[in-house]
Design a protein around this nucleic acid. Structure first.
Length: 354
RNA sequence: UGGGGUGUAGCCAAGAGGUAAGGCACGGGACUUUGACUCCCGCAUUCGUAGGUUCGACCCCUGCCACCCCAG
């Protein structure tokens, strides 16, 4: 069985490749370069990761390739990312990246190479029915990022580290003498990486400064452009020493008047939401029945503890009522639904109800 | 230019003769395959300014400056 492993140069995908090789698969490593950028010295910022991939593949004894999906990434992920920000929302590019790039462009590419399956280092599992399951490591479970996938994509995918904990993965890497065993986990937008987010956005979207106001209309500061802020955000507002001295948080964006609405105090009622409407509902396998309230659990952001919700599907919309008020649920972000350990799917938050 | 008041870090604010609390903001780090949240650490050799008293002053005295209020 031929398997093409998407390798990032990190521990997880390296161990994924190693395990598959040990299990007797015909393994090929493929490094995806999806973002064209060079550092101040003119060196591609992905160069060191590519080097790590080559080192690891050599050590494991598997062939490797590099592919470039920068155009696909830009067209299918990044353009939407930008338009969402323009619309005053806070998108999650990585859920799209998985649907459009890793489990589409990359999957297609692997199939053309004659692969039977692809594999990645995601901490998730699948079962025989093609369902998406949480990873065994509760703390690293990445099903949130894969909720937009369909069963047919999962059926062509292997997740060799999904049943392991992060610590076990590092142990395996260490025991095998893999050079990236202690490499720090990468963060930031997938393929783009960690960086000053405001600065990064500023290079793509024009800024339009305006006022920061309280719900009562009092002007308490100036913002640098609405797209630089997200609901629930505290840092970067620059408002200090007002009122009772507590922190301010973003609760709304008034695009019409180019105003950022802020409140004082982490427990302000406007920071809490009792329900939401999600659009572009997608289900891994079977859609929720139309119009029938379903008691499920949900996450509104990665690594959030499960929240009890009642969901009613209406076409491509999900009407979600929270068991307990949720803090800073943000339009543009994804709500992901679970029944036990099964990730059912989810949608993109469009409206919030207070 | 008569009277009263206030001047402590970017902002708010303790302090009250014994050698500068705290909060917010900000900076750094941790956490994290989105954006956030959260957590930890840091952040006035100096108290409008110039002198004086004192072993010792942000706290007492004097001059000056600035701002505020009430009278004009």
């Amino acid at each position: 069985m031929r398997v093409v492993v998407g390798m990032s140069g990190g521990v997880d995908s390296s161990v994924a490749a190693l395990l598959l090789k040990q299990q007797g698969y015909d393994v090929t490593g493929v490094f995806m370069k999806n973002w064209e950028e060079q550092d101040e010295n003119g060196v591609c910022t992905a160069e060191s990761d590519w080097r790590d991939v080559r080192d690891v593949c050599d050590a494991i004894g598997i062939p490797y390739y590099a592919v470039n999906f920068a155009k696909e990434y830009k067209d299918r992920v990044f353009s939407l990312f930008l338009s969402e920000y323009r619309a005053g929302r806070t998108p999650n590019p990585d859920v799209l990246c998985n649907r459009e790039i890793k489990f589409k462009a990359f999957l297609d590419f692997a199939m053309q190479l004659g692969a039977d399956k692809i594999a990645t280092g995601h901490f998730v599992n699948t079962n025989a029915q093609g369902q998406l399951l949480r990873g065994a490591d509760q703390n690293k479970d990445q099903s949130y990022f894969l909720y937009m996938l369909k069963a047919f994509q999962l059926q062509k995918s292997l997740f060799p580290v999904g049943h392991l904990t992060k610590a076990q993965v590092r142990d395996i890497a260490r025991d095998a003498g893999i050079t990236v065993a202690e490499k720090k986990d990468s963060t930031g937008v997938c393929f783009i990486g960690e960086r000053d987010f405001k600065q990064f956005l500023a290079t793509f979207l024009p800024a339009q400064p305006g006022a920061m106001v309280t719900p009562e209309g009092e002007i308490v500061g100036c913002h640098d452009g609405l797209m630089y802020y997200t609901l629930g955000q505290r840092r970067g507002l620059g408002i200090g020493g007002r009122g009772d001295g507590r922190s301010f948080f973003v609760v709304d964006k008034d695009l019409q008047n180019n105003r950022l609405i802020v409140v004082q105090g982490e427990d302000h009622p406007l920071l809490y939401t009792t329900g939401a409407v999600a659009v572009q509902a997608t289900f891994v396998e079977e859609a929720l029945p139309e119009g029938v309230p379903c008691k499920l659990s949900a996450k509104f952001r990665y690594r959030q503890p499960d929240q009890g919700v009642t969901v009613v599907r209406a076409g491509e919309q999900l009407h979600i009522t929270f068991d307990t008020p949720q803090r800073a649920v943000t339009p543009g972000q994804s709500t992901v639904l679970y029944r036990g350990d099964v990730c059912l799917g989810g949608g993109i938050i469009d409206q919030i109800e207070r």
